[in-house]
Design a protein around this nucleic acid. Structure first.
Lengths: 148, 148
DNA sequence: TGCAATAGGACTAAATAGGTCGTAATTTTA
DNA sequence: TAAAATTACGACCTATTTAGTCCTATTGCA
């Protein structure tokens, strides 16, 4: 249904929150969950996953928490989405291969093109672009944006 | 999770099948479901919905079925998807309005831009482009396609 | 030792997607 | 007119995914 999962949404919010910490200070899950109205245990798992995938670094024990790992402007949105949600495919046959409908399935090739286009959109955007509340200047707006 | 529903997939396959009928002849659901290995009752409902939304015209009774209504090259994919699946929004706050997280939610604006870009991709493609098994010539391939 | 924090498994609940069944209505054909 | 073929449509069931809860380690600081 062309929607990100809450997990991914929470992950972006958390990364954003962490990226605004003074000098990349450690911030704990409770603060992020309180500030953004996200259930603590859920956000907790999301951050564990972000840590497993090397987007953030955990600091255990009292006064622990998380901070951003690496340079978000060098990580692209596509890799992030694929690591959080798995491969992106509008229909199964794009990611799974093998059409269950017919040998001469007519929709696959065009959907593949649409899918590739979407992927390229994600590929051209860094994580930093997404989480840093970036406002595009008029001449920076990517082409073809309708505004709706 | 950035995937079309089966319903939409079936709808595209059905439109494709119908569009290949000689002289826009009527084709019944059974033929389409047999030919594409789609459960008959499911496809049946999909076509009823396509008829309600004016993409196809039903012909009742024996020897009845459906045929394409109007010119698919004049209908765009965006309208089709929105009519089949509802408004397209990567996260709820794009379609619903009103962020439940915080007043200063930092991810909405960039996600809005990504969303608009995706929408423009769908907007620039006609239904005919999708269902007619179109192969892009090398110089027609939309920019930025990675091929994965 | 006690508290504050992450780590992570097991479980439940809710939403969505996908599919089945039964029956009515309509139209052609014999 | 009866039978067969077909769409129309609602009620229901099931599987999967998504979202969230709970409990119990484990780690490290004070």
């Amino acid at each position: 249904m062309l929607k990100l999962t809450k997990k991914t949404e929470y992950a972006l919010i958390a990364l954003s929150h962490l990226s605004h910490a003074e000098g990349n200070n450690t911030i704990n899950v409770r603060e992020i969950s309180d500030h953004n109205n996200i259930p603590f245990p859920v956000l907790s798992k999301v951050l564990q996953q972000l840590a497993q995938k090397d987007f953030v670094e955990p600091v255990k024990g009292a006064r622990g928490g998380y901070h951003i790992k690496g340079d978000l402007s060098k990580q692209n949105l596509l890799q992030f989405l694929e690591r959080m949600e798995g491969p992106i495919g509008l229909v199964d046959c794009i990611t799974v291969h093998g059409c269950t409908h017919s040998d001469t399935c007519v929709i696959r090739s065009p959907l593949q093109i649409i899918n590739d286009t979407i992927i390229s959109v994600f590929n051209e955007m860094s994580l930093a672009d997404v989480i840093k509340h970036h406002h595009f200047a008029p001449d920076q707006i990517p082409e073809g944006i309708s505004g709706g």
